[in-house]
Design a binder for these strands. Sequence first.
DNA 1: AAGTTAATTAACTTATTAGTTTAATATATC
DNA 2: GATATATTAAACTAATAAGTTAATTAACTT
Lengths: 108, 108
Amino acid sequence: MTLSALADPTRRAILARLTTGEASVSELAEPFDMSLVAVSKHLKVLEKAGLISKGREAQWRPCRLETKPLMQVDDWLESYRQFWNENLDRLEAYAAALQRGGADDRNK
Amino acid sequence: MTLSALADPTRRAILARLTTGEASVSELAEPFDMSLVAVSKHLKVLEKAGLISKGREAQWRPCRLETKPLMQVDDWLESYRQFWNENLDRLEAYAAALQRGGADDRNK
DNA sequence: AAGTTAATTAACTTATTAGTTTAATATATC
DNA sequence: GATATATTAAACTAATAAGTTAATTAACTT
């Protein structure tokens, strides 16, 4: 669910905004060229995904960023980091071999 | 586009499979309880997002994982890593303060 | 050249998503 | 208590997504 919540650019912009601190629904909506209702729905999606939480202060619902799901994405990436590091290692080894005197297919 | 491609569990499973090496479309489709055509479409989505590339060997289209978009996701996460580390720092500082003799609000 | 295997394209269905406008619910203020 | 502000809920529309089956393309095997 986290990834599909993150798939929308408006929602990602909202999250980015929240790294600078809490904000109310209408504050969060302000930069966007869409209705407040639409933004409110985006916030609901983010909340269901656990990416934000809402407090209550009078008639405002201050939203704040929750990091747990993002940390899980970070964890999920781990196996792929291993994958691309292996690839980079292979590439470096190949480049080094070339440097040492072009010991590639063309010399066989 | 990367994140919405990653939002689907079937597609994530396909990527995970591809960390173990190249595979043809039908090999990739085999574990799933859906038509080959459906998997072929998922592969098209992954390909458009740059997450895989397809070669051609006779009638097979060997797919392999491409890491660039995943590395970009990793980069995108960076600002959030900073955010949650700051939060952890604050938490640790608070815990340390408590340890040093409960210098919290209740003592003012 | 007939048949088999691998994959894609086309046409369609159903469900979900992102947005809209209008109405409702709280809370605060005059 | 009336009114203004902040937010959510309801009802609807249009676009996109995920799946299906049937047909097509391409390459290999007899």
